[in-house]
Nucleic acid binder design. Structure first.
Length: 209
DNA sequence: ACATTAAGTGATT
DNA sequence: AATCACTTAATGT
C-alpha cells in the first residue's frame, strides 16, 4: 500500500522529503464497496487520495435529490474538498466507495503549509482541481445537452471505463439516483438499450456488449 | 412458506 | 420524462 502511494506521488513530481511526511501524517483507510467515506454536512478533515478502487462524488441538496458529479480513480484526489475546508464551509457532497477501495487520508491542516512550501505539491493540488473542474463541465454538458437515453448510455460507458469492467453491479434504483431521475424511467430506457443489443440485463447487473 | 426487494409495464399527465 | 398503480421475478429468513 505504501508503495502505490509513493509511486503516485513521485509520479506527480513530489520530492521524497514531502512524500515521507505525507506517509507519516496520513492514515490509510480501506472502504468496502458501498461504504460512505464523506457524509454531507460534515466539514471533512481529510483530503483523500485514492490508492486503489473507485470513489463517486455525489452532490446532494436538502431534499432527496442527488446527482453524480464525477468519479475518483486510482491515483486521483479530490482537491475540491480543499475549498470548503479552507473556507470553513460545510460540504454538500457525499463520497462513496463504488468498489472496495484503499485510500490515503491526509489531514487538512497540513495543506496550507505544504501548498506554500512545496511548488510540486501546489502543482499537484491545482492540477487535480483543474481535472475535477473539467469533469464537472463534462457532466454539466451531458445534463444540459443530452436526453436521458443518451445520458444513461454515457453513464454506463463511463462506469465501464472507470471500473475497467463490462459488468455493472447496480440496481436500477441506484443508477436513477446518480442521474437524479426515477427508477421507472431508468428501467424503461435500460430495456430499450437491451432491445437494441447494447446491453444485457440481469437482476442487479448490467453487462455492456 | 412468507416477506422483502428488484424489475417490468400500462395508463395518465 | 415523471408518476401512479399494479404485476412478476428473484432473493432472503
Amino acid at each position: 500500500m505504501q508503495e502505490s502511494l509513493k509511486s503516485i506521488l513521485s509520479e506527480a513530481g513530489i520530492e521524497d522529503e514531502l512524500i515521507q511526511e505525507i506517509q507519516k501524517v496520513g492514515i490509510s483507510k480501506t472502504a468496502r464497496s458501498g461504504e460512505l467515506i464523506i457524509t454531507p454536512g460534515s466539514t471533512s478533515m481529510y483530503m483523500p487520495i485514492v490508492l486503489e478502487g473507485l470513489l463517486s462524488v455525489v452532490r446532494q441538496d436538502g431534499d432527496a435529490n442527488e446527482i453524480l458529479l464525477y468519479y475518483l480513480e486510482g491515483g486521483e484526489t479530490c482537491a475540491m474538498s480543499l475549498a470548503c475546508c479552507i473556507e470553513g464551509k460545510r460540504n454538500d457532497f457525499k463520497v462513496t466507495a463504488e468498489d472496495n477501495s484503499v485510500l490515503w487520508m491526509i489531514p487538512m491542516n497540513y495543506m496550507d503549509e505544504w501548498i506554500q512550501n512545496y511548488r510540486s505539491f501546489r502543482k499537484y493540488v491545482f492540477s487535480s482541481y483543474q481535472t475535477r473542474f473539467d469533469e464537472l463541465l463534462e457532466t454539466i454538458d451531458s445534463i444540459t445537452f443530452l436526453n436521458l437515453y443518451d445520458r444513461l448510455y454515457k453513464y454506463l460507458l463511463d462506469k465501464k471505463q472507470a471500473t475497467k469492467s463490462y459488468e455493472i453491479n447496480m440496481s436500477h434504483e441506484q443508477i436513477a439516483q446518480h442521474l437524479n431521475t426515477s427508477r421507472v424511467v431508468v428501467s424503461r430506457l435500460l430495456k430499450q438499450l437491451e432491445n437494441e443489443g447494447k446491453i444485457e440485463l440481469e437482476r442487479n447487473r448490467i453487462s455492456i456488449l
